[in-house]
Design a binder for these strands. Structure first.
Lengths: 342, 342
DNA sequence: ACTTTTTGCGCAATCGATTGCATCTTTCTG
DNA sequence: CAGAAAGATGCAATCGATTGCGCAAAAAGT
């Protein structure tokens, strides 16, 4: 029915024989407008079914009340939980959220970042793609002092706020746990070392071994993309070693699961013969048999923190000079796959 | 450093002593501008680090190249996979995606829909909240002929495009499968009947029983919100029946898992003593022991279809008169939890 | 009664990109 | 070589909301 163009404040103004400025001010509860006029205008706006045009407002105000999110893949528990946390806070503060996924491709990430910039988001929350090794595209934002918060995959070179987990402690705690459970040769399935996350975790792994005087054997360290396939390949490789490991700390739960499935298939008992611990507490790790020990990565809370930090920065007049880094605690969740001592 | 305001086409025009219109046309490859001028302008734009202001463009063009998505909760496998599918198609077609979650609250859903409208999204993709029993807020869109695609939770009253799975067939196939596996008393854990989805599924369940001349016992049908807790309560209730069931078709994998955990605990063997089938093929259902039979809900593909349909509608001059409903196939995935005949 | 303040509202510019309608050159045609 | 046609670019309005400044009327102060 209502095919005509939207009604604007000018339409309301014309109907009421007043100026558009007054309508605008009335709708924004500007004190310069009398109560009587305000009421009249608001009533008319309602009657005419007026809906503000946020685009126009954004253009004029140089503010979009929108924050952009860049993640490698929406459809992964950690990221979707994180996004959920961001959205919660954003909504409560009157912000919209534009989400894009990089599919772990640098080129797509670049495009997305440009697009979000052109859409004039007020701030950006991003996790780097696995390929990302240059950061010029983020300078669009930093040069204009548009706040950015990086999370999960971050690099030290980046001058921006960061939300991370203590990856060193992750590696340390996971490894220490396996040691304390009596495992002697502990393998580590690590992600690509270009990412600091994985470097730190491996450092924690090494530190724990050293602390407990366990010999470090580089043959027990395998790098990969932590997929199911690669997890399976890794465990095959490890078992074929002259001195195979009796436990593994995997970079994520997915690869730990892959190992578990294979170990069960070849008749190696978990946790008796082989101990496993993963990372990030995917929903499945609790319900598989045996359940997989892991470290909880508080995704939702990280999203909340990221959004709070970003919005605070957006709305503060003065831009913080130093960049804050929030390190989130990760909790070790001991389950069956590593519970040799009970 | 670069603290000054953004450079606009006017800045470029000034530098080159030409008009802004020419710059605009050049950057848009308008044939009315000579190659020489275009090259000069593009070079200058690059040199000055020009970034188009999409907001201004959107306002003028009355088009935002943005589509809005409303889901109950981002952080759920089905929805995040769906969104991922939408985002893929949207990005490829030059659209941004604004995502909001209703948290299954009608009031929040209303706010979101208004906000997306004010942001002038070119189209909307939505799944109703569990509470939603009125639809006036969507009329904002339909009245202005802004296309909407509903998915998953839909109602027949809605005059819009829909992407759904064939819920009747889901119920039918799941139940038929259990019957063919030799189970005799098949329970059904159903969702709230206000939602058509669940009504249809139950109808399918009943139809299958009838077709195979299995007596329908209403005591075996339990309604709930399909959470883990309620799944556990349900199986307790069912087992306490004078004539307990020997199989169950659960409304989702989560509740099926809850049943499984309880059944294992009390020593009832799956699938020998009790058959289980869930719905939606959550990632965990494949990896638990025993693995859970289920029906695949092609979330990602549904997102793809939804986006394709919406974008096609947005970009077609003529608005389709009839509303299309795309019914996606669901495939039964037989796993251990229901494989008595092998 | 006259100045000063306060109150209420309108004018017109602005945000940045787009586009219909000129205008001014060239180039071509007969 | 006049006049038409084609080619290249500029002017100014437009999208809808916001806001600094100004003006008039009403209220307050002397």
């Amino acid at each position: 029915m209502d095919n005509k163009a939207s009604i604007t404040i000018h339409d309301i103004a014309r109907e009421l024989n007043i100026s558009a400025s007054t309508v605008s001010r009335a709708l924004n509860d500007n004190p310069r407008i009398s109560k009587a006029t305000k009421d009249k205008i608001k009533a008319k706006a309602l009657e005419m079914g007026y809906q503000p045009n946020t685009i126009a407002s954004n253009l004029r105000n140089q503010k979009t009340n929108t924050i952009g999110i860049v993640v490698p893949l929406i459809n992964r528990h950690f990221f979707s939980a994180f996004i959920s946390g961001v959205e919660d806070v954003a909504f409560a503060s009157g912000y919209n959220v534009i989400i894009s996924q990089s599919n772990d491709l640098l080129e797509k990430e670049k495009q997305i970042v440009h697009s979000l910039f052109s859409n004039r988001v007020d701030g950006l929350i991003a996790s780097l793609s696995m390929q990302t090794n240059e950061f010029d595209h983020y300078q669009l934002f930093s040069k204009k002092h548009i706040p950015i918060v990086f999370f999960d995959r971050v690099v030290p070179e980046l001058e921006a706020h960061k939300i991370v987990v203590d990856d060193f402690m992750v590696g340390f705690k996971a490894t220490e746990h396996l040691i304390k459970q009596g495992y002697k040769r502990i393998a580590h399935l690590a992600g690509p070392t270009v990412l600091h996350t994985y470097r730190d975790r491996m450092a924690g792994y090494r530190a724990a071994l050293e602390k407990y005087n366990v010999n470090i054997d580089d043959n027990l360290i395998i790098h990969g993309r932590l997929t199911r396939i690669e997890g399976q390949e890794a465990i095959k490789t490890l078992l074929a070693l002259p001195q195979p490991p009796d436990a593994a700390f995997c970079g994520n739960d997915t690869s730990a699961l892959a190992m578990m499935v294979y170990l069960k298939k070849v008749g190696i008992r978990i946790p008796e013969d082989f101990g496993l611990i993963g990372f990030s507490n995917e929903p499945f790790s609790e319900v598989v048999t045996p359940s997989i020990s892991t470290l909880e990565q508080p995704a939702f809370e990280m999203g909340v923190k990221a959004a709070e930090l970003l919005i605070q920065e957006i709305e503060s007049k003065v831009r913080l000079e130093e960049h804050v880094t929030i390190t989130m605690p990760t909790e070790l969740i001991q389950r069956e796959s590593s519970s040799r001592n009970k």
